[in-house]
Design a protein around this nucleic acid. Structure first.
Lengths: 333, 333
DNA sequence: TTGTACGCGTTATCAC
DNA sequence: GTGATAACGCGTACAA
């Protein structure tokens, strides 16, 4: 069942069928209707491979993410896919893990599939060493690269980021403003976003005239148990703190569990703030105050920007989206 | 940059280049090496669209799910994608929501993309009324349809399911065996899997010689808050129960929050069992005993079965995988 | 072992 | 407004 069959049954040439198919106005209303009727009767569907060959696109974009089962990224993928599809694009998903070589391998695999663009979801795709990003810079000559909550400067590379720095600064400032003197900061990643958040923490301390104390800043695996255990051992070592700011809700959940384990009252003796406003923040008692990083807005903006790139519109290479602080019961502000 | 360029530079015909490309043994070692060298120098990548046109496949499968941000489905998608990719297949993701018409629309969209198979992830794709599934039955004539934790009988349709019924029966039996007399059952969905779990609950009661009491069986939105509120109002109405079995961890979290709100001790006065062994089960204090529904095994088995179908091997149309009960602190068994 | 020629199903460029 | 026909790039009979 192809365009020739349709043309024969309709008594026209394949050119006309193609014109009808693509909404070309140079077809008389009569032939158009006739062709459409025949298509319907025959249950004809154009062959996307042939179309792809001719147009050199199948209206498909690649979505790379390190781990699509991570709640934050799972949300991102959901919104990206829906938004892309609403614009008529398919999404090829590609879960890469965290190893640079694997990421590079999958990236070129995706390129070899001739996707129209690649979206890198999450901040794990921009490496510390500039030369480790060169594969992206080079590829951007051929196809647009979109970063969701990551930032890389380069031609044909577009970033949509949440203002993590301001978000953390605001939260920590509120903690300080509500009487906390020793705010512990727990983070899991050295990514662009991770370092931004850390800067926001320092900003807040500095703005309040407080010293930045290295012993209050700790890295920790993005894991409830790891976070709880780290806090337990820090407390055992004699470290004191009256608030915990975290870079992810899972770490905040760990902090709640630490407090429960030690009989510390929340928020009376310990305030806790999470990040991403995920389901996890609603699972504990008390429920966790958390920064809403606006995944949906991030993703729809990314896709809108991409559509702008496709249509040749002038589009910003970097868009920043403000976060929200969702106040719940682990803080007294 | 195409196969002709390579053939010219290498001084051979395109047929030879194609043979090298596809590992055809009928090429002398010398020409093979030469061609490979030229390919490398030119940075040649075969055009997947042209290949797809000729072979009528681009080694791509469609994955449909109602909501990829749901923790269970997010895990499923992760494992499906990784497993498919390890076999050289791409995944086109398609989040459909729960509306039948939309599901049908996206299903035919996926078919029109000429995917090699469609995987339906989650139990939300098999409808109660048989005629609502006929679109799947008919499509299966053209391409294999794989159900992950759903069951539909039909030619070229393959199901991989978790033995939910046995899992719930086991958990409820353990609750009864450890002294509980009134086990409340909370579920969220009427899907095949949802009804199976309910049957498991009834099985356990019957096996223990206990009556099935409708007032102990309640449907509830798959949502922490909804679950907590439902239990609060049931208790207010005077219903008593000493254990809660749930069809999803989120409902179990709600049960924990209910107990906290009412000062009920867990597991002393109330035992709770969740389902899916997700992150959520680890967020509460105490941590929740939960049924591990073996998503990874479910997904890799599904993909292995699909590969069997592709290669013409005789594969079972239905595979059942046993679950595990992960004992934590919301139960005293 | 290698090369020629055709088919795959479109889109697009002509000419009429 | 419509119809031939040439790309698009690959796989593969078939011939040599």
């Amino acid at each position: 069942m192809n365009i020739y069959d349709v043309s024969q049954h309709a008594g026209v040439s394949i050119a006309t069928v193609s014109r009808v198919l693509n909404g070309n106005p140079n077809v008389s209303e009569k032939t158009r209707e006739n062709v459409l009727k025949v298509m319907d009767e025959l249950g004809y569907t154009p062959n996307v491979f042939a179309r792809g060959l001719g147009l050199d696109t199948m209206h498909t974009v690649g979505i790379m993410c390190s781990d699509s089962s991570d709640p934050y990224l799972a949300g991102a993928i959901y919104y990206l896919e829906r938004s892309l599809r609403s614009h008529g694009y398919d999404s090829i998903l590609c879960c890469t893990g965290y190893d640079l070589e694997v990421k590079q391998k999958y990236f070129s695999l995706l390129r070899s599939k001739r996707v129209d663009a690649v979206i890198l979801a999450g901040s794990k795709f921009v490496e510390m060493r500039p030369r480790d990003n060169s594969y992206l810079l080079e590829a951007a000559a051929d196809l647009p690269i979109m970063l969701v909550n990551g930032w890389l400067e380069g031609d044909n590379i577009y970033s949509t980021v949440c203002d993590d720095r301001a978000a953390v600064k605001q939260a920590v400032s509120l903690l300080i403003g509500s009487g906390h003197k020793k705010v512990l900061y727990l983070y899991s990643s050295y990514s662009h976003s991770g370092l931004n958040k850390l800067d926001g923490y320092k900003d807040a301390l500095t703005a309040a005239g407080l010293p930045v104390q290295p012993e209050l800043i700790h890295q920790c695996a993005k894991d409830v148990e790891a976070s709880r255990d780290l806090l337990l051992s820090l407390a055992d070592e004699g470290l004191t703190f009256d608030a915990v700011m975290t870079s992810d809700d899972s770490l905040a959940v760990g902090a709640v569990k630490y407090a429960h384990a030690r009989g510390i009252s929340i928020p009376g003796d310990l305030s806790i703030v999470g990040y991403n406003n995920s389901l996890l923040a609603l699972c504990t008692d008390p429920e966790i105050t958390s920064v809403d990083s606006k995944v949906e807005a991030l993703c729809t903006t990314t896709v809108n920007t991409l559509m702008g790139v496709f249509s040749g519109v002038n589009v910003p290479s970097r868009t920043t989206i403000a976060s929200d602080l969702i106040k719940r019961s682990t803080t007294n502000f």
